[in-house]
Design a protein around this nucleic acid. Sequence first.
DNA 1: GATGAATGAGGATTCATTCAT
DNA 2: CATGAATGAATCCTCATTCAT
Lengths: 201, 201, 201, 201
Amino acid sequence: MNKRQEMALKTRQKILDAVYELLQKNEFDELSIDDITNHCNVAKGTFYTYFKHKDDVVFEICRNLFADIEQRMNKMKNKNIVEKLAYYFDEFMKEVERYGINMTRVWIKGVIDPNKAPKNYDNKKWQYDYEMLKNILDKAVKNNELKKDTPTNLLTHLIITQLYGMMTIWCMSDGNFEPKDWTKKFSKIQLKAILCDFIEK
Amino acid sequence: MNKRQEMALKTRQKILDAVYELLQKNEFDELSIDDITNHCNVAKGTFYTYFKHKDDVVFEICRNLFADIEQRMNKMKNKNIVEKLAYYFDEFMKEVERYGINMTRVWIKGVIDPNKAPKNYDNKKWQYDYEMLKNILDKAVKNNELKKDTPTNLLTHLIITQLYGMMTIWCMSDGNFEPKDWTKKFSKIQLKAILCDFIEK
Amino acid sequence: MNKRQEMALKTRQKILDAVYELLQKNEFDELSIDDITNHCNVAKGTFYTYFKHKDDVVFEICRNLFADIEQRMNKMKNKNIVEKLAYYFDEFMKEVERYGINMTRVWIKGVIDPNKAPKNYDNKKWQYDYEMLKNILDKAVKNNELKKDTPTNLLTHLIITQLYGMMTIWCMSDGNFEPKDWTKKFSKIQLKAILCDFIEK
Amino acid sequence: MNKRQEMALKTRQKILDAVYELLQKNEFDELSIDDITNHCNVAKGTFYTYFKHKDDVVFEICRNLFADIEQRMNKMKNKNIVEKLAYYFDEFMKEVERYGINMTRVWIKGVIDPNKAPKNYDNKKWQYDYEMLKNILDKAVKNNELKKDTPTNLLTHLIITQLYGMMTIWCMSDGNFEPKDWTKKFSKIQLKAILCDFIEK
DNA sequence: GATGAATGAGGATTCATTCAT
DNA sequence: CATGAATGAATCCTCATTCAT
């Protein structure tokens, strides 16, 4: 990579950072190209060197959201199913909090409405989440941690719903509601309650 | 009411209907006054005869959303707590489906972000929901249906979270996910599981 | 005049009064037909029963401005020229103050720009003023109060200019400048100074 | 300054010129952005590249009005007070004529009503004028050209009033009145008359 | 005469996007 | 690659005026 390419990469990153920072405070809809380029001392036109459409930046930014929860789950290989799920919840919500309330709002809005979402936008996320979780549960069945007749897709659904509900309510409450606290309570009470019938003793 | 007033009311309704219909297909943000007034063959200025701001129409439309679940709950007075909650879920989701996926999206978006919400917009809904549900649980405690030490606000939170999660996922799945089906499954499995420890036998 | 005609006259007057009152506080340009008709509890359409154009009301209102200074001048028949002029100044400025700063502004704006003035608008006022004053001076010449070679039209001009300048500056100063005070000072110093060369001893 | 910047400056000037030209014929209130941009073959949006608000153009244009009379007064250092004032009148009125009747109307209207004036509009002008003139008179007192007990602020007021009255009447007469002629007559007759009592022989 | 619903031209302003330098 | 001037469609909203009742 020559110097010019390096500089280009840096410029691109400057823009991404600017968007990321601005989204901590503002709505995406309220963000103009001017805001973005001013914030990172780049000319307006430069934005279009790297992104064909305004929406594409969000795509770029959201793409990495939750990206590596799956990897982190590897640490939990030897834990039991309840611990694994509790960990999953925790990581999920940490990720959400890390992104901040505005990014999450952007994400929900984008993800809620497939038509409005930027081209290529990853609005399949909840399906990945679904599959990842289902996979965890299925493995538990295989390992005889859970009974053979455990309705894994039903359980998966319930759990995912709960997680997304938390995200939504967090945004609605304008941050006055500690997601991490609630995941813990959720893990303790609800998770146990749901699974207890299916755990193989 | 004389004929002129009747006509005026009709015009007003025509506008509301137009917005309602257009929202089945489009985002609220994408709706221009032109779109609305063209769709119901009314002059642009006429819109402003009835609504001071663009936002006010949505307010008007959303206002009635879920408005009368509370009343309907009266029918369930003599039922037990599990039946009551199951009924509540059912009605909640029926309401959501009745409004259609786009209206719900509008609603979530509006509600997700208190700052961007149209003036007067009822973004306290989830708090009303919260209180309504909590009330139901508290009464059950009083009636000795539930144990004295039932953590009602925790349970309320879990349940609300689940409902809002369902709404969110319904919107995300672009309708490919039958909310009513899932509420039933949810009632059967999760609700029982959560409550079983607290039900007074 | 039957009752209906009486009522009509009353309605018309109500509108004129409303405009007059509103102009004490607001610019004419900022006054909408709605403001006017709301202020006097009359339907919007009624305005157009009496006035073909919005501008016509101002015409109607301004028409009477200064209307009867001429009559009042009769009281001064037996006074000397300096007293007469001083009286004229005084009455002129009283009139201006009575109309209030906003009405005067409306008047100046209207009068300043012949093209923008409402049809029929009396933008010849300064010519009437001119003639009235010149007449007073000419009479004084006839009566041998002033010398035969007094340049009456020049003096008239200077005096009128002074009066209009006062009006203008009064409006510019936003009312912080007592026109009546200044007319007195003006009469005492300037008037005497201007006339002294021409007064017949 | 590179070529692009030069072009930009030219575009900006094109807009200013267009406004200036259009104001010779039209009211500022009647000027739409469309009018302006059409008149100089520039896209509507371009207007906003250079001016944030419509009002800002007038500000820009009026800003320089009378700006350098003060400097020019330096030429008169060694002249006596009557000559100085006569020169001042002359320059003032030359300036007014140079700006043309419509610009002057715009200016008067703007200046007459402090509330309606465009943001940043220099409606303190008459105070500057006042101070400048008073300064001239005060110096004359110091230099013993005028008597110690000369009421300089009263005289200043009278003179300013006269100048503004001339401007006003000029606008009212639709140009049929030669300001420069009148200033001369004014200087000769009125000025001498006013000052004669105070001039130190 | 009185009403007020309906009209629609008109206006200011924003902003994503293009493109010549 | 970077720049930033130029673009013009799009949008919300105002308001004088008309006219059927």
